[in-house]
Amino acid sequence: MRHWTLTYSSQTQALLWLPMILLALVLALIGVHVFDPKARRWTWKALAVIGVGMAVGQPFLALSWVPPEKYMGDTGRILYVHVPQVWMALIALTLNFGASLAFLLKKSWVSDALAEASAEVGVLFGAVGVTLGALWAKPTWGAYWTWDARLTTAAILLVVYSGYLALRKFIEDPEKRATWSAVVGIFAAVDIPVLWFSVKWWRSMHQTQSNPSTVDPLMTAVLRYSATAFLALLAVFIYQRFLVASAKRNEEVALPEALPAVGGTP
């Protein structure tokens, strides 16, 4: 593999740290949000401001500031939306796995509401990410779609989690719905590592994962910046969708024999 050694001015090098600082800030806010319930009134708003603000600046950095990719030219700029969108989908669906497991172990409505929220937001980011990949494939591979290992496992992921969301719509009894969907969520998560490693396990048109040592630092910085912006939005979306699911669950489980309501057992 060919390694490029580039030198930048000290000002540019200092700027390259900015995405890491913003990422640390977003992760800290998510941490406070998760572990301090009283802070949730302002943490999600802070994440929304950061996410929207960064998302507004993202096209400028990705479409103008960073130079075009060596081989693909300007088409390579799709990298800065395609890759973070898929990363966010995988984070959300991994959260769905954790919440599904937690529901089966603790029978808490919080876990069920979180599973519902993370699956829906994960499917949103996944569908956008896969569509962006198809838009990128056309000018680089010559076709929007090919049944290569990475694309096939991504399609399976979307179909399975769309089925998961459909299952949740079809079952009226909240306890049955939560239990069955938790089981499906656990089995569906098998595809997440398969998708991630598919480019290493099988010969694929899709490239393997890059790392900062093989990518220009400017490209790495913009990719990190984009991922941080989408991470902040992902956290806001999941939290807001969680509140909707929690409110619906509280309406459904008002019966005394039902499991405790969302506010009852965290």
Binding site: M72, T75, Q85, V128, L132, L135
Partner: peptide, 14 residues
């Protein structure tokens, strides 16, 4: 192809 129309489509869709 040029590619910009795909880039614009991708950012617009997002």
């Amino acid at each position: 192809v040029g590619g910009w129309e795909y880039v614009q489509g991708a950012y617009g869709l997002t």
